[in-house]
Write a protein that binds this DNA or RNA. Sequence first.
DNA 1: AATGAATGAGACTTCATTCAT
DNA 2: CATGAATGAAGTCTCATTCAT
Lengths: 201, 201, 201, 201
Amino acid sequence: MPKTVRNPQQERSIDKKNRIITAGYELFSENGYYNTNTVQIAKRAGVSTGIVYGYFRDKKDILREVTSLYMAKVTKPILQLFDELCAPFDVRGFVAEIVELVIAAHRENAGIHEALHALTHTDSEISAQFISLEDELTLNIAGRLSRLNVIKKDAKEKVHFAMDMLQSFAHEYIYDHHDYIDYDRMKKLVTDSIIALIDVD
Amino acid sequence: MPKTVRNPQQERSIDKKNRIITAGYELFSENGYYNTNTVQIAKRAGVSTGIVYGYFRDKKDILREVTSLYMAKVTKPILQLFDELCAPFDVRGFVAEIVELVIAAHRENAGIHEALHALTHTDSEISAQFISLEDELTLNIAGRLSRLNVIKKDAKEKVHFAMDMLQSFAHEYIYDHHDYIDYDRMKKLVTDSIIALIDVD
Amino acid sequence: MPKTVRNPQQERSIDKKNRIITAGYELFSENGYYNTNTVQIAKRAGVSTGIVYGYFRDKKDILREVTSLYMAKVTKPILQLFDELCAPFDVRGFVAEIVELVIAAHRENAGIHEALHALTHTDSEISAQFISLEDELTLNIAGRLSRLNVIKKDAKEKVHFAMDMLQSFAHEYIYDHHDYIDYDRMKKLVTDSIIALIDVD
Amino acid sequence: MPKTVRNPQQERSIDKKNRIITAGYELFSENGYYNTNTVQIAKRAGVSTGIVYGYFRDKKDILREVTSLYMAKVTKPILQLFDELCAPFDVRGFVAEIVELVIAAHRENAGIHEALHALTHTDSEISAQFISLEDELTLNIAGRLSRLNVIKKDAKEKVHFAMDMLQSFAHEYIYDHHDYIDYDRMKKLVTDSIIALIDVD
DNA sequence: AATGAATGAGACTTCATTCAT
DNA sequence: CATGAATGAAGTCTCATTCAT
């Protein structure tokens, strides 16, 4: 008797599944994956413990969906920004906007990034999901910027590296406030570095 | 009745404590903190389960020491490089050296960085250890470079950001190999960005 | 994340909780608190180890409930006897009845009194429970006897001391049978002493 | 290879053994038998963990000796008082003296009585030791008082019961102070009850 | 489809006892 | 004789998962 997981079609069921994912999202974000148990998830989602296993194969399966949700939340606003983009455009202004966007995304998706990233190393599936997100973003953005002729050379490498910078900085900005750092000045350095990176031929 | 932990003085005991730390280092690195149990650590260290608690208050205490070990491993070679540094010096060559060093450190200290960083978000003690490592490195390096007049302005912000870049890149380089990225080209971009960052006034 | 303990409402659950308490009662009684482990309790109760922690915070929590159960078992029949009491009444007959009652209670509640009393010295919570039981009994009985004008002076001191005598004797009677003691004669001495105590002005 | 336990002849060894017993006495008294471990005992005695097993077969063996020590401490002063006793004598004064003596013994031997008595129920060996102590005291005292013609009938029963009363009261007096009890009045009741008991024919 | 009580393997930790030095 | 580090069995408690209702 192969174990089956419901694939909810009905509205009420979909809602229930989503509530579980959201609960997982919040709890993993707050306490990390290993410090969250299924009873907590069920309680937060307002469902019974048992039904969780109606929608998800196991705890890891919730993690997978939480990861997808996270991906969507982070990717969407950035791609949207690019959608509205058309040449000629103000590079500095645009980069500044992106910086703010990434910071905001980081702030909103608080702990989950850490919680998920943490698992990246021991869990190949999550790792793959993360990598494929990066791939999609990198290639998508690199393609757009190439087409717009904003970046002429090494677009993928530049975009990827720029994304890394942004992520590092956003993390720094949100979580690891060091007293001796002037974050506004640092933000300017980041923006400048990215602009310089784009302009390098 | 305060629980006491042996503070080993004899060589053999120190060795045993170190073997436990090393075992923890390796296992946390391979499987993460939560997927490693004390029996595994003891077995890998070649000691009994019981004696682990002769040297460490609890499992978390092993983690603390593992973190310290990691800190030392990462910090030392970098500070050493700076120790050998004297003006006038070849900025490009030096940065290139640093890049290689950080990549090497990342390679050698494989999973542990992830495993530890993962806990940063749920464990304030580990977080504090990490932050204090960054503080030390940043301030130390920023101080040196200021004194050598290599960086004239915003030294701390620049150094901190440069370190973030390096870390992101090293991580990328070691773990997340994307097929479509030419990592040598990317390495050059990183080096250039750091140099540019230093030169900005 | 406050740990929650089920507060069973359903009959079956209440029964299960009671079975655990009873199992604890028996095992603590037979082997003492420290020589009883949670696996034994679960087995005796016919439940799994895990569910024990669904009903009780920890092993100590079982002890608390066992103590309460013991209290009830010991207190109830004595208070009941007093409930049926009305003046004028035959002091000698009544005291004799009480003596038999306390012996019976001791016999039935076998080892548990010892097991619990044992903890009294190292566990302030159990100690408090015991003391409050004594308080209740002493004050209740002293009040009744004062009101009935059976005892005119120092009612609380007399009642308390009489209870001590009874307990000592019952313990002696049940457990520490010495060959050279004629326990029927001793029982008469106890009865007489209590009667004398009451009559002292 | 039958396990042997040293039977120390040399002074230094005897001293060491005694220090272990004393340490056990104190620690069992403070924390109970089960909350005391051998490392603590060794530390308090100022010896190594290992050597404890040179003098004692196991932890229980320490308990045995501690029990003996307790016996001696409690028995001696009482028997001594009787040794000094000769007719004709002042019953009331003598009983009052005994009461004070037992209270003092209880105070000094604080927790150990409880700690040991606790084990009485699960440990037949300790139980036997306790009973034989009582036997010795009861028979000894009953014999003396009979010979002195102080008690004419049921001497053993009376003495035993009197000892129970004293013990209960002393325990009460030292440990379970209830606010609503006037202990001086209660002490008088105890003394009177014992005197009455002796005088009953 | 839903509930939530129940299961039991396994995690962390303690400690009586042994043994190499 | 003495040391105290070492052993490993056993205890308490947690939690992913199942199952009777």
